[in-house]
């Protein structure tokens, strides 16, 4: 396990530097006037221009710029927005909402996906299986930009089951609809993977052994099959997080939830470059860290890797 950990950790560090370098290069490299690009169409007063040049070390060679940027990332200094607020402070304000939203979404997704996945794997080819197959196909093909406004229109405005928007201090109930919308992004893949994995495991020899041991079906599936089947589902969490981030940006924008995605959308709309750069950097770091943790978790779940 130690060797796997070390190898994975080294890979993680490499990916971290590579990814942040790309993000930084995308934003600043080879641009005739990077400052104007940061500020978008708005006019840039000379004092702001100077402050920004200093802030981003734009007079230094590119690789040094990246060095300063990395130093900032590692010491928690993500800069200030064009509205002169520290990015970190804005982030601290925004992330609890987003975490709460994503957490509800993940719980909804896992509950539905794993349960439905198991049931359709057991009754493969049945009515339930075919229905979920069609539903997952529909979910997969619904871009979040379609799903979020439509869900808001139908459930929030026409049926009025839930509030159409969730402001700064609305309760958990207001988050239910956005969380469902968000979870739909990952339900389909999770369900499909669970189904495929359970179906494959159900056919395996160890299931026959477990039945020959006189174990009840509940235990055979709930303990023996489930533990094996969840391994690929857990590894999905890493990629799911990327989807959830993308989803949160749109969902929070549509439902007016003042989270990370909402701020990012506002940053894009107001052409606040430093804000976008800072937020994207933080999100990329979170994504990388979570993926690393998931990979390590994978080793805990599967002893075959642990003892490699």
């Amino acid at each position: 396990m130690f060797r796997y950990f070390v190898r994975r950790l080294l890979q993680g560090v490499l990916t971290f530097f590579g990814a942040t370098f790309i993000v930084y290069a995308l934003m600043f490299a080879n641009q005739s006037d990077p400052l104007q690009a940061l500020a978008g169409e708005r006019p840039l007063p000379e004092n702001v221009r100077q402050a920004l040049t200093e802030r981003y070390h734009l007079d230094d060679p590119f690789i040094l710029q990246y060095g300063y940027y990395m130093k900032g990332l590692l010491t928690g200094d993500f800069g200030t927005s064009l509205t002169n607020r520290p990015i970190l402070e804005m982030m601290e304000q925004a992330w609890p909402t987003t975490i709460r939203l994503s957490f509800i979404a993940i719980i909804i997704a896992v509950l539905i996906a794993v349960t439905a996945g198991i049931v359709s794997a057991i009754r493969r080819g049945g009515v339930f299986d075919n229905t979920t197959l069609v539903i997952t196909l529909l979910l997969l093909s619904m871009p979040i930009v379609v799903l979020a406004p439509l869900a808001q229109l139908i459930f929030g405005m026409r049926l009025q089951w839930v509030p159409a928007t969730a402001g700064a201090d609305s309760g958990l109930f207001a988050l239910v609809l956005p969380a469902f919308v968000l979870s739909s992004l990952v339900i389909a893949t999770q369900l499909r993977v669970t189904r495929a994995s359970v179906a494959e495991n159900l056919r395996s020899d160890y299931v026959r052994t477990a039945r020959a041991k006189g174990l009840a079906d509940r235990r055979v599936i709930g303990v023996h099959v489930l533990r094996n089947s969840l391994i690929p589902v857990v590894t999905l969490i890493g990629t799911d997080l990327g989807n959830l981030m993308a989803g949160a940006i749109v969902t929070e924008g549509v439902f007016n939830i003042p989270g990370v995605g909402f701020m990012l959308v506002r940053g894009i709309r107001t052409e606040d470059g430093p804000l976008v750069v800072g937020f994207v950097s933080i999100l990329v770091i979170v994504f990388l860290v979570v993926n690393l943790v998931v990979d390590l978790l994978y080793a805990v779940l599967d002893p075959r890797i642990r003892y490699e």
């Binding site: 490499l14 971290f16 590579g18 790309i22 993000v23 989807n243 981030m245 990329v284 990388l288």
Partner: peptide, 16 residues
């Protein structure tokens, strides 16, 4: 290289 590109969530990279 593939790992590094995959290390950046698609939509975030696309936005930038």
């Amino acid at each position: 290289g593939i790992d590094i590109v995959l290390g950046i969530p698609t939509l975030l990279a696309a936005i930038v």
